[in-house]
Amino acid sequence: MYKVRLWSVRHSRFMERLYNGVNPAILATLRGVTKVFGTKLDKPITSMEAGLKGFLFDCQMCGNCQLSKTGMSCPMNCPKTLRNGPCGGVRANGMCEVKPDMKCVWVLAWDGAERMKGGDAIHDMEFSGDHRDKGKSTWLKLARDSRPDATVKPMQNTNV
């Protein structure tokens, strides 16, 4: 929902704290679940992630979640799906070039990042996503990574 999405960016500091607080627990639970059930529960877990993140951020389930690095504004809502935006077409009132009724997701991203403790991560380049991961769960991907403190794995083939 667009309004909730805007709220999440306005409260990016709170969302960051929430994420940092619950993330280890979610990942630990998922590690346990995937150990016992293998891939059997992947579908409901993915639906849960899609539902929650969809409600809060209009998450598009790209499978390479960068929310904590983009001011809690999901870059996949950009009509050009720019992961290092914004483009040069942003309207003078900060609205999207393609969808004039939507605030540019990267105008929101820079704004949200400013309030976050780890907001500086927005300066780092994020290489364009792995399209094979579309529709897949980032949480499961992180949980299956052997390192408990792992962030999103760089794409295997890209090596950038």
């Binding site: 050009k80 290092n84 040069g88 070039e97 380049m125 950038v160």
Partner: peptide
């Protein structure tokens, strides 16, 4: 990045945007 297809004379075209301009710059350097 490129203008959106909606701005042009083939608005029904499929926009690709596989890379963005920053990733593309990095790709060319690689």
């Amino acid at each position: 990045s490129g203008d959106d297809v909606g701005a042009g004379d083939h608005p029904e075209a499929k926009p690709v945007f596989d890379l963005d301009s920053v990733s593309l710059t990095k790709t060319l350097r690689i």
